[in-house]
Design a protein around this nucleic acid. Structure first.
Lengths: 188, 188
DNA sequence: TCCGAATTATAACGACCGGTCTACTTATAT
DNA sequence: ATATAAGTAGACCGGTCGTTATAATTCGGA
């Protein structure tokens, strides 16, 4: 069914990347079409409701893309403190070798939470899922249910906020310094 | 010289508010002009370089606006933990009585950090200033220089990230739960 | 092979974008 | 009072936005 990567997949991947880098209103359909090597006809064939529908699919893609990376990193150490610290350090390193990944969901959330309810809801579900990943890691390491849930919330906020600081300063230093403080912040 | 609030001030205040609520590309000049009760002629009289110049002035306004509130809240308790906790709790409360203030700078930073260097630099300087406020509070309470700087960074990330989670979930709960964990996170 | 459906390619549309320009009104100073 | 500047109002421009419509092409099963 189609080549290894269908036009639909190309559109979703490209939209996911561009929306991460410049937000929802900062990216036009023209650019998504050009960069994905598809055409306007394909876009409206697979996403008849247009930009909003594509954005929701792109948000879902970002959710899975990031979730995979988080699970991978968290599995690298049994101790959750080491695992989480390593994960954030990796984010910082990716920043410094400017493989730009942008602010995953926060930008779109900030642009649309008052004006586009379907997109806002999609963003909320992404954060819920990411939190769950950290929560489970902490739970399986003997943290209490309350501690796991609360620390997971703190971690998501720290990471999302840390990425903001790193993109604003064009340096992974902020994320790196946050990573180095994780052992002080997360204690059983 | 002009009425109590000049057209220039009205433009800056309105732009500051709207950019906070919907980001840079999500707000048009037409809307800024209408909501501020001014005219396009005035906008380009005071900001001959257009939207970008207005945005930088609006970012500066947001910086001062938030700085004032932070300093006020931090002065309410001698103990920095109580003061910071109280500050974040207040943010959470403002959220619940939906006096929308938006994600102060993060959205604009995420939209523009790759494409508009002057705006990106303005955003960076805002975070630097806000960090300084927390850092000084901690320093004056006997925290070491390194601890003060590191905790200030963590606090900015936590708050900016917490606001993202609160806007995405349309609830101050995320910020409130983060506030309640501050004593565990910030220890001398 | 052939037919119908799926997919792709483009032209065109109205709406709106940021920005420019000019005319008009208001304030300031002598 | 008058000259000069400061500020305001809004029509207008080219370009781009998301969307629609239609034609051409490719694909899949009988």
């Amino acid at each position: 069914m189609g080549s290894k990567r269908s036009a639909k997949d190309q559109l979703i991947e490209t939209a996911s990347r561009l929306f991460r880098l410049r937000g929802y209103h900062g990216v036009g359909l023209k650019e998504i079409i050009e960069e994905s090597g598809t055409a306007k006809g394909s876009l409206y064939h697979y996403f008849p409701e247009g930009k909003e529908q594509l954005a929701i699919a792109a948000i879902e893609h970002t959710k899975n893309f990031v979730s995979d990376k988080v699970q991978e990193d968290l599995a690298e150490a049994a101790d959750p403190i080491n695992a989480i610290q390593g994960h954030i350090q990796k984010l910082a390193q990716e920043f410094n070798k400017d493989s730009v990944f942008g602010l995953p969901i926060g930008t779109i959330a900030g642009e649309t939470y008052l004006t586009n309810e379907p997109i806002r809801a999609a963003c909320q579900s992404v954060f819920d899922e990411w939190q769950r990943l950290y929560e489970e890691k902490l739970l399986s390491s003997g943290y209490s249910e309350k501690q796991s849930a609360d620390y997971a919330l703190v971690l998501i906020a720290l990471i999302e906020g840390g990425i903001i600081l790193s993109i604003a300063s064009k340096s992974g230093e902020a994320l790196s310094r946050i990573a180095s403080q994780i052992p002080l912040l997360i204690k059983k």
